[in-house]
Design a protein around this nucleic acid. Sequence first.
DNA 1: ACCTGAACACCGTTCAAGT
DNA 2: ACCTGAACACCGTTCAAGT
Lengths: 225, 225
Amino acid sequence: MATKGERATRRTDALSQQLIVQAASEILDAEGEAALTFRALTRHLKTGYGAIYHHVANKSDLLAAATDDVIARVVADLVTGAQPREALRALALGLFDAIDAHPWVGAQLTREPWRPALLDVYKTVGEQLQALDAPEEAIFDAAGVLVNYILGVAGQNAANARVLAGGETGRAEFLADIAARWTRLDPAGHPWAQRAAKRLREHDDRAQFLAGIDLILAGIEAVNR
Amino acid sequence: MATKGERATRRTDALSQQLIVQAASEILDAEGEAALTFRALTRHLKTGYGAIYHHVANKSDLLAAATDDVIARVVADLVTGAQPREALRALALGLFDAIDAHPWVGAQLTREPWRPALLDVYKTVGEQLQALDAPEEAIFDAAGVLVNYILGVAGQNAANARVLAGGETGRAEFLADIAARWTRLDPAGHPWAQRAAKRLREHDDRAQFLAGIDLILAGIEAVNR
DNA sequence: ACCTGAACACCGTTCAAGT
DNA sequence: ACCTGAACACCGTTCAAGT
């Protein structure tokens, strides 16, 4: 803990990638993506620019490392030994919750796929699909569907969370507003838009997310037969 | 066409949101996201900052409008009257190709979902699923799965395109590198990683994208029975 | 109403200089 | 090897002033 007494004096312990990534993560969580500047980092870490650049190549490298960190922790925390179906649901929910807690991760993964942490996710999904006896030819495609669905919905959810956190509107108003625009899209009266708007107002994010996962798994099983 | 003769003189015709969005789109396509600055825009449009700010609120507003434009064009160009299954595949491919041609759209959609253009996409998907006789309760979930899969894969594909366009590595090397990192992940020999790496090296982006769509449709039909 | 462009308050990044 | 912090070359955005 930093006491009031230690003012802007130089830090005594050594810096490291680890420490910098951790500090970046804290700033991103607390104040959002726009708040992560090298100036803020030097303040947070009581150091200079050069010190930071000595451990990370540049800002995008730093963001990537922070993202890897979050994803890797989710994969590492997975309880092994569960049934494949449960393991996939657990991985999906773990990623969903992690991106909900760290919304900046969602945007970052779109910018840089193929990061090591994401490869780990693909690998885990692939192995569980194999354990589920998915047909050999379908595993690769199915893994792509699952991972992209997970990251897509989680990212969208995170973007929503960001809007709700930053603004004066509550969740109910926000959804009502979308629903209203939705119904306005289609005044002629195709009934789907109306029902979707109603559904949107009432839906539970996590529950709907899991329903999508189950739908995909149903598709894999259908191909299996 | 701008002739050599007309130097940095003032433009004579009036500016408009339309024109600004179009200019932004051209800069984004030609030189990437980092090249879109208000300075570049004033040069491109032979005007001042205030003129631009008179028609768009700020940069993120401009990016959003440019994105809406691309997506709306895809939805508008859809041939109506096709079988629902074909209509869904056409929409998916249309979005895939549009995001491949305008990679910046991929990142933007993650940042701001619920834009009008995206609502149109959801609506189209929902209606086609209804025409496909998907069960009422599943349509909402299925639309979410489809749209997120489409945008996720298209965005990832666009990110890849960006890496390939900017760098000195070709597609074969790029994929080989990922495959290599993949196999290295799992030296103990879980066989899935090895097979996935092979598959990755040989795969066709569009074909795999469509295979994923079909898998999801299979899931919807499975629930249907 | 629409436009101009100097000015402001920021950025990321570099680098000579220190320990 | 690791760190400091002034300096550089940019940004997005504002705003008094023009037509």
